[in-house]
Amino acid sequence: MFQFNLTYAPGGKEVIQAAADVNQGEVLVVSAPSGTGKTTLLRILARLQPALNGQVFLNREDWLDIPASHWRVLVHYLAQKPALFEGSVADNLAKPFTIRVLSEKPFLANKAKALMAELHLPSHLWEQDARTLSGGEAARLAFVRALLIEPALMLLDEPTAALDEASRQAFYAVLQSWLRQPGHAALLVSHAEDYQLNNLKILKLSAP
């Protein structure tokens, strides 16, 4: 469902080529030593920065035929240190639905609460100021927010880096069940090699 073939130069240094074909339900793990452009690859795929050249297709549609604002919802990038906004946890979860592209979708508070519970985020956090959350809580909150906007493809940048073992397992369980729904796939950058996921593919980055 998702194909890409790109060349890019992270940090303006050596040129890297990356190509892969991801089927629905699959996770493509991007593997490379640190500083070799894994984050850059995810950001390029989210159209947050340009590639040198190449092509990307989502469900056989060329990415350039899709407006960037729609693309970024469909192919959704979750930063390693996710940005939280002023306001409560609930405000942060509802934030995407204030954007015009998503404003026709309802904000499903009950679904959000259920996902929080699955990710071991206690319900009393709902009204709490989001900027008082710990790193691990913030990472899971951002994951819930990403699930609510219902992308087709998730670009996950070190999503478990700030999580303890129990939260990590909960994270992978939620991700796995999301992947089982039709039309979903993910790219994952992670240092910890305990993915706890089915349908893994590995992409090793290298110079062409």
Binding site: S69, R72, Y77, A79, K81, A83, K95, I99
Partner: peptide, 16 residues
Amino acid sequence: APEIEALLTFGATPWE
């Protein structure tokens, strides 16, 4: 910048 990029990933236009 991190907030602005997060909004972009929610489908925000530059103006939004």
